[in-house]
Amino acid sequence: MALIAIQDVTIAFEGTVAVDRVSFEVARGDYLVIVGENGSGKSTLMRAMLGLVKPRSGRIVYGDGLEKNRIGYLPQQTAAQRDFPASVEEVVLSGCVNRMGTRFFYNRADREKALGNMKLLDVERLRKKSYRTLSGGQQQRALLARALCATDAMLLLDEPVTGLDPNAAAEFYEVIRSLNRDHGVTVVMVSHDLSGAMRDAGKVLVMNRGMDFFGSLEDYRTRFAEGMVKGHG
């Protein structure tokens, strides 16, 4: 059974269709990259997968033990966050809010999970540092550690390398690949950076309101090598 199944989903805002009749499945261990031009509905689709946007029609089914609130999300950074006074530890720990249930405060297990993820992403030595003093790459790693606190199974990344310099971006992809291969985390990534994002991808989804393409990376390459669709290479 798939972790998440998108079944004939259409999303519209004030009469404009942003996502048009999209269907696909994400299985455990997948590495899916969603590409497409600006306004092609890829971020909207991702928000729908998180339950932040209601589809107008169609269904999104969570399975294989995945709950809607247990997805690790790495949103695009907002302007307010850049000068937010918070220590890395506070940021990472805030990923545990979905494990609290009816509890009011973090418990020892939450703190240990946060610490483990900080070690995994090599931000543990920065734990007392302020988030706003970190470099772009370090900030993304801290947010990734937070996302991992929220999930054991699945990461949804929205344009994760935007604003990172090439070295930091390469490092970031390295981290994602290791999470996917060595830790069995399912990865779904929305990206503009085709060459970088696709190097490690297993599957590719090309959005253009509707689905232009969904399949394995090999199929995608053969298809686009033949030049069947313009503007996605």
Binding site: L50, P75, T78, L93, S94, G95, V97
Partner: peptide, 20 residues
């Protein structure tokens, strides 16, 4: 609600996605 208030203040999108 201190932990949740922090989560909502720092990143409302993430907080919503995790069920806050």
């Amino acid at each position: 609600f201190y932990p949740r208030i922090f989560a909502v203040t720092f990143d409302e999108m993430f907080a919503r996605a995790t069920g806050v």
